[in-house]
Design a protein around this nucleic acid. Sequence first.
DNA 1: TTGTATGCGTTATCAG
DNA 2: CTGATAACGCATACAA
Lengths: 341, 341
Amino acid sequence: MRTGNPTLEAVAREAQVSRATVSRVVNGSTTVDPKLVERVRAVVERMHYIPNRAARSLAGRMSGSVALLVPEDLSRFFADPFFAAILHGITQRVDAEGYVLNLLVSSGSGAGSGGGTIAKTASYLGAGNVDGVVVVSHHAGDAGVEELAKLVPAVFGGRPSKVYPGQTHYVDVDNVAGARVATRRLVEIGRRRIAMITGPLTMAAGADRRDGFLAEMAASGLEPVAIAIGDFTAASGASAMSEILATGLKFDGIFIASDLMALGAVNVLKSKGLRIPEDVAVVGFDDSPAAVQGEVQLTTIRQPSIRLGWMMADVLFSLLAGNEQPEVQYMDTELVIRQSA
Amino acid sequence: MRTGNPTLEAVAREAQVSRATVSRVVNGSTTVDPKLVERVRAVVERMHYIPNRAARSLAGRMSGSVALLVPEDLSRFFADPFFAAILHGITQRVDAEGYVLNLLVSSGSGAGSGGGTIAKTASYLGAGNVDGVVVVSHHAGDAGVEELAKLVPAVFGGRPSKVYPGQTHYVDVDNVAGARVATRRLVEIGRRRIAMITGPLTMAAGADRRDGFLAEMAASGLEPVAIAIGDFTAASGASAMSEILATGLKFDGIFIASDLMALGAVNVLKSKGLRIPEDVAVVGFDDSPAAVQGEVQLTTIRQPSIRLGWMMADVLFSLLAGNEQPEVQYMDTELVIRQSA
DNA sequence: TTGTATGCGTTATCAG
DNA sequence: CTGATAACGCATACAA
């Protein structure tokens, strides 16, 4: 900590008051003479005083920082514009709180990538280095991530695979409902032979969207033509599409559980000479920038991604403030109609 | 800082030594009796002792954390897979050092988005809250970002617009050379009417790649057909492409300064019925995942993106260790030939 | 309403 | 090689 910055002490001397008073002013205590407040404020301003975070967290009980825990596969996470938006929202809210965001990379397997093991991560979080943590995009396989909620206030993006009543909190959209709307759209425009590409079934969002698809198909008296599994990446969307095409099964509509996968799938479709939506209607999910990045503008289910991220941080701060919070905060999805369906 | 974790004190008591000794063991001091080392290690292990970061940074001179400063437009930054890779490399290196990464959002204009003003950012950084900072993707317009180098050890990703000798450090590729190779490829496969889509000219990478293109064209005795300016996003690539098409000028090759822009541009080209590479050969830049995400696999200039990020952090740590560092570390680019050219 | 005194968990200095 | 002991900068009971 290369010093040289004014300390509370220095400000106090300069303003002719005690350290305690300066501290009170800085922290907005109400029980202080307005005249002093004025004077101290001025000195703080003039000296460019910035409270030292380390000292503050050592003395007080708050660290002033929260962690963002990202799954091991960083490149996959950041490659999806949907998550970029989530992150955007999180930083907005964290920033507004005057907090700092620590980027943490977890690694389910102890493998020697760039990330620490989950155990290391856990002890870091548990050691009180951060006041809370936001966990995004986690899989059922990510051993022990859910246990984090016992160590430190935690908010998950999307429903965790294990939920500890009273300790687990998460922000989510109703993926089942969203998937049903998506599927209904295909039915409504007259498609009857419908396929789907799902996300990873180890993620709640993956499984739920498939379930919604299945439910709506059943409700419409339709039988799914084919279901292939992807992992939310464009590449996986492409190969899942090829897989379905390879079956030779005919289909005139497909619901794809993320826009990024849809992007990859659409490429494959077009390279086979199929027209969209004439030959195959496509509905995606997310309404991330990827939805309009391809040659064909995707009809999709919009998630309020930035607000989703914002809300995750908001719930966390609310928790830190000692407020009771519902286990889950749902946000709405919405059908966005473009060219593909 | 909700406590409950064992402290140095506790470990010392348990191991029947002084706090100082435990501290030495934990920090790997060599001047300590092996027997004691052994004993202390065991206790540390057993009690799950984790040093308190705040206390450490307060007592010592290091904070154990570095900041990653990201430009205001978060969504644009994170939407580019190239930067995802950079981030990947940075976290790897930071992690290996046992440091934590603070994500900071700057905002050139004091506008009330989610980010702090640059002044706030500067004082945060200057206040010794972090030992150093990595600045990525900055524009010439980002007022005062270069000045950060005077406050705190800083490493830039790409050449900053202002360089303070002895204070500024950056990691970069030779963009001019890379652009020349890209352009030469087009010439070598017989293209003579060549256009270009540049990145923002306020960024060194933007301007340099254009300069390389111009230089190679001149060296080949060719005149550029058209040059349009993008901002490294897919959308800007698409509109730049439309712009060029709208001129009615004929071209059979185009160099596009980023794969993401190329993605957008290719969509436009195909939607106009142009074949790639038969009608128009395309060379991109980055070799990010975007290069293989579209319908046509892009020939492009590879940047070692993960290693680039890794190196930024590495240079920073080297600086922190007190080592002299060259002002710039260059990394190699490489032509990757795929379908588009 | 204000000031004083103490402690937060570590590192660093200095004797021993 | 090891153990006291003094900072580090701040928040906060407690006293005035």
